[in-house]
């Protein structure tokens, strides 16, 4: 059966059983299945700093996303910034992103990957990450097939936005419907609350506050999401983070 058809059949077979908010996870699972990947994740991105996890095929894929977001660089960021697919092997990961490599190889079973942008025309709005446990470098046709599925996925996501999306008016209360309010996204929101708290406590710009939180998460050996959750819960002395910055 043709690739796109298999993909569509795979995700629609499950779609009726779940709410819209889980659609991205269905799409990620279907993408992993038809592309013979061992994990897949979908992220929304807007500019260099703003990145939300839409959904993942499983816990390992979700972990891989959180690690990369914690470090703030990696193949997913590069795919979005450059607007082209990025393939990764253990060697390339270790050479290009050594800090991420140390964590990724220690915490996930994945040894190769393809990150390919989600886009509409020239406009990019996210990334499809595919993960493989085999260390073998992804082949050229794997990359082309991944791009094809990313194109289809982007189309499905945009088509399933609420009716108010048609004229481009984002909801004024900042709480859009459907998959833009997935459980994974709700967890990530703590990061921006924590950035705001650090903004004030450390008198830092947003970019610097985010960098400080990232550095502290790394020093503590936790993900940025975990640290942000602690910060929001009041369990972190933000003034104390200044020492991290100044040393």
């Amino acid at each position: 059966m043709e690739l796109v058809e298999r993909f569509t059949r795979t995700w629609t077979a499950e779609a009726s059983d779940t709410g819209d908010e889980l659609l991205p996870s269905l799409l990620a699972r279907a993408a992993a299945r038809v592309l013979s990947a061992d994990g897949a994740g979908l992220s929304l991105m807007s500019g260099p700093g703003l990145r939300l996890p839409l959904g993942a095929s499983g816990e390992d894929a979700a972990t891989a996303e959180r690690l990369q977001f914690s470090i703030g660089e990696g193949p997913c960021f590069e795919a979005h910034q450059q607007g082209r697919p990025v393939t990764v092997t253990v060697e390339k990961l270790t050479e290009r992103w050594p800090v991420l490599a140390g964590q990724h190889l220690g915490c996930t079973p994945f040894r190769a990957g393809i990150s390919t942008p989600l886009r509409q025309g020239a406009e990019r709005f996210g990334v499809l990450d595919l993960y493989f446990t085999s260390p073998e470098a992804p082949q050229g046709h794997d990359v082309i097939a991944a791009q094809l599925i990313a194109e289809v996925t982007a189309g499905v996501l945009l088509e399933t936005l609420g009716p108010d999306a048609e004229n481009g008016d984002a909801p004024a209360d900042g709480v859009p419907a459907a998959w833009l309010d997935s459980p994974a996204i709700r967890r990530r929101r703590d990061v921006w609350v924590a950035v705001g708290m650090a903004n004030l406590s450390l008198r830092q710009s947003s970019d610097d506050a985010l960098a400080t939180l990232r550095a502290h998460a790394y020093a503590e050996g936790c993900t940025l999401d975990e640290l942000a959750h602690e910060v929001v819960a009041g369990g972190v002395d933000l003034e104390g983070l200044r020492a991290d910055v100044e040393t």
Partner: peptide, 11 residues
């Protein structure tokens, strides 16, 4: 195009 803008603005 509107829908992509919506995603960016909503985020």
């Amino acid at each position: 195009e509107h829908r992509v803008r919506y995603v960016h603005v909503a985020m």
